[in-house]
């Protein structure tokens, strides 16, 4: 069984987690043009590599970020969104 580490609850079986897609900046819906908005809604970066993704530990409803290699399925790091913001600051 594959294990993922929830930043709050520690290591748990992967079946307890839901995948929420890649972390992507959203353009401002009030000012953006239609083409950019359509590209934001539909297009995805489906090139294999290390990505930042949203994941949720379902039983505790904890949303957090995982860094995962989408070619090898290796989970490199998991952390809460707030920590990511601190890292940037």
């Amino acid at each position: 069984m594959k294990i993922m580490t929830c930043p709050i609850n520690g290591p748990r079986p992967i079946t307890e987690f839901a995948y929420g897609g890649e972390v992507r900046p959203m353009p401002d819906p009030n000012t953006v043009d239609d083409a950019t908005w359509a590209a934001y809604i539909y297009n995805r970066n489906s090139i294999p590599g290390i990505k930042q993704e949203w994941w949720c530990h379902v039983p505790s409803n904890t949303w957090f970020i995982a860094e995962r290699n989408t070619l090898t399925d290796e989970i490199l790091r998991t952390y809460l969104y707030a920590e990511a913001q601190e890292g940037v600051a």
Partner: peptide
Amino acid sequence: DPYELHSTR
């Protein structure tokens, strides 16, 4: 499968 993966494991 429930998440993105470029592999046939």
